[in-house]
Each structure stands twice: as structure tokens, then as C-alpha cells.
Amino acid sequence: MLNTILAIVTFFTLTGTENTNDVQANVTESTVIWKATKVVGGGHEGTVVVKEADLKLKGTELKGGSFTVDMTTISSTDLEGEWKDKLDGHLKNDDFFGVATYPTSTFKITKVQKTAEGKYNVTGDITIKGTTESITFPTTVTAEGDKVTTNATITLNRTKYGVKYGSSSFFDNLGDKAISDEFKLIVTLVTVK
């Protein structure tokens, strides 16, 4: 009986702890770029600031992690002046992300599947406007010296998070003012081991 208990303890000691390190991201080097398009040509893009992020790494292998973005910083980068101010203000109001009520959005990894050296399929829970959905997307991890960089392009359907403004899935006769339901987040997290 004692041998069985020791064997179980040894098994969990060897397999349950993967010697992972929690590594904080450098938020000044990490970026999130968003890209949205209209149904009939055109679109906008911009940034949102990474508030905090950490990755669980075993050496340079990705094992888990999470990040939080500050939605109050969402802004367009393809416009200037009055048009930029109008779009940025609209993105922050309740038609879109309601940042006064929902100042942050988060993503937490729940599963990592290695597909090749430096390449992974990542599954996790993303929360936007208080709604959480599970998503899966490909991710690459590169290491240069002590710096580890994680890159991913995430495609989301905004209507799943209550962002329905200008969606032809919910409103008729929008014509060329219809905005695509899907938008992209291009995420780069930079950490130093």
C-alpha cells in the first residue's frame, strides 16, 4: 500500500509540475491591433493598450497565460482630427464597447496544443462587455536571447459580445453602412525570461 501511495505521489510530482515559469509581459512592447471592415469595402483599424499580461513558459514552450487590455484606450490609427475623435468616442460608447461599464477585456488560456516547433493551437476564454466565449486560434512563439515573443491573429464575431451596431445580422436596410460582424485582433506579447 505504501509503495502504491509513493508511486502516485511520484507520478503527480513528475507529471503535474512542468517547471513552468510565470513571466510578465513588457506592456510597453506588447501590442493589440484591431481591424474592422465594412460589408461593402472600407474599414478602420487601431490599437488598444495591453494593461497586463503573463505567460506560463517551460523554457520557450508556451504552457498557458492570460492578458488584459484597457478598453478605455481603444483608438483608431487610420484617421486624424475630428473624424478620429468621432470614431474613437463612438467605439467607447454603448453602441460598441461601453467602456464606462466595461473598462477591460480579458483572455485566459485554458488549453495549449503544440503543433510544431514554436507553433501552437491555443484555446481560451475571452471576455468582452461582460460576456465570455471560448475561442481557439493558432499562435507562434519565437525566442531571441532572453526575449520571448508570442504572436496571434484572433478573429471574433462581435455580435456574440453584444456589439450589434451596424450589423446586417440584426438590422435591415443598412446598405453600404453595414459593418462586418467579424473583426480581427493582432496580438503581440513580449516577455523577458
Rank of each mutant, 00 (worst) to 15 (best):
V148K: 13
W34F: 10
D70Q: 01
Y165I: 03
Y165M: 04
E117L: 10
D85K: 05
V99R: 02
D54F: 15
K86M: 03
D95P: 02
L6Y: 13
S105Q: 05
N19H: 12
S167C: 06
G59N: 10
L55Q: 08
T123M: 09
E82F: 00
S66D: 08
D176P: 11
Q24F: 08
S30C: 08
K51T: 05
K114E: 14
H44F: 06
T191L: 10
E52Y: 09
E144K: 15
G59S: 09
K114H: 13
G16S: 09
N21A: 15
I74G: 00
T159G: 04
D146E: 14
K108P: 01
S105I: 04
L185K: 07
V69C: 06
G98W: 01
L185A: 09
T37G: 07
T150D: 04
G130T: 08
A100M: 06
L174R: 04
T47D: 02
V163M: 03
M1W: 12
M71K: 00
I154Y: 08
Y120P: 03
L79P: 02
E80W: 00
P103R: 09
V23E: 09
T150S: 11
K111S: 11
N121T: 12
Q24A: 14
K184W: 06
E29V: 01
I128W: 05
T13R: 06
T155H: 03
D70L: 03
G43N: 08
T153Y: 06
V23L: 10
A100Y: 02
L55I: 11
T20V: 13
D54C: 05
F107H: 02
H90G: 01
F12Y: 13
T159H: 07
V69M: 08
K92N: 03
I5H: 15
L79K: 09
N21H: 11
T123E: 12
V39E: 12
N157C: 04
T13S: 11
T47G: 02
G166W: 09
T150F: 11
A100W: 03
N3M: 15
T28D: 15
V163Y: 05
V50T: 06
G46K: 03
K184N: 10
Y161N: 01
T127R: 05
V112W: 11
S75I: 00
K193W: 05
T68F: 08
